[in-house]
């Protein structure tokens, strides 16, 4: 479903701040794969997701989604295939527009936009049904501006928006990192529900090793811009945080240098 072939990205090339963020990274996802991605700070986790989404031009390699080479497609054209939830709850929704308008925008992802109504009556009732399933009471606030919602509500809404038009790939970029623990747990639960119900091929980046182990069918560890560990199936189910830490130091030759991952 997704192929990342030797993708390479260098930031600030030719300067003292040169940073090889993606170092000929390879990753292949089957349809229905739910991959959790961990790695230290600067390992290239978010950069990898942004490379899939098309936020910047690659310095090498190719991105293929469901047989279509999207390497040269701009971000907005790739959006047809991709649903995204961002780390910052502010990023995934339009704050000055109301809930139903945001949903209507998401319902038209990858479709031509003309002079038809931006939201139709049938869509309104569909939106209400979908919002009900979130269980956050948002179905009674459909005309509230999204800017009034809490971070957790916005992430839940963004998740719903990402799945309205079934994406080929769902990208979750540390989408619970900015939330309090309880809300984060609820949003993760929702993510699982939505992924399972729609059988979405998913990549979830996280700082939290427990979450990485508990969710998905496959776990990938990045280090210095490439994959150093790829565990799936039964092996992943038996995985513990200690295993991960020792595997990390074995492959990378250094201690896992993220306090946030250790403490979580």
């Amino acid at each position: 479903m997704l192929e990342l072939n030797n993708i390479r990205k260098v930031f600030n090339a030719g300067t003292v701040n040169e940073k090889v963020a993606l170092n000929d990274l390879n990753l292949y996802l089957e349809e229905g794969d739910f991959v959790t991605v961990i790695g230290g700070n600067g390992a290239g986790k978010s950069t990898m997701l942004n490379a899939v989404a098309g936020a910047f031009a690659l310095d090498g390699g190719s991105v293929v989604i469901d047989g279509v080479d999207v390497t040269r497609l701009p971000e907005y054209k790739r959006a047809k295939y991709i649903g995204r939830v961002f780390q910052d709850p502010m990023t995934g929704t339009a704050a000055t527009m109301n809930i139903e308008e945001n949903l209507a925008l998401a319902a038209r992802r990858g479709k031509p936009r003309g002079l038809g109504w931006g939201i139709t009556r049938t869509e309104r009732s569909q939106c209400r049904e979908k919002l009900k399933q979130l269980g956050l009471g948002l179905e009674n606030r459909m005309t509230s501006k999204v800017g009034l919602l809490s971070g957790g509500q916005r992430q839940a809404l963004t998740l719903l928006m990402a799945s309205l038009q079934k994406p080929k790939i769902l990208l979750l970029d540390e989408h619970t990192a900015a939330l309090d623990p309880k809300t984060a747990a609820r949003v993760l639960e929702l993510s699982d529900e939505i992924v399972e119900k729609n059988n979405l091929t998913t990549i979830m980046v996280t700082h939290n090793m427990r979450d990485a182990i508990a969710h998905g069918n496959r776990l990938v560890m990045l280090h210095d811009g490439h994959v150093v560990l790829d565990i799936s199936g039964e092996e992943k189910k038996k995985l513990t945080v200690e295993d991960l830490l020792s595997k990390f130091s074995a492959t990378s030759g250094e201690e896992f240098a993220s306090d946030r991952a250790l403490l979580a």
């Binding site: 959006a79 339009a94 527009m97």
Partner: peptide, 19 residues
């Protein structure tokens, strides 16, 4: 609506396939 989304949050708009 796409135009309003562009002004409100460009990143979100692009993620929804808006040029």
């Amino acid at each position: 609506c796409a135009l309003r989304a562009t002004g409100s949050n460009g990143q979100m708009a692009r993620a929804q396939g808006i040029n």
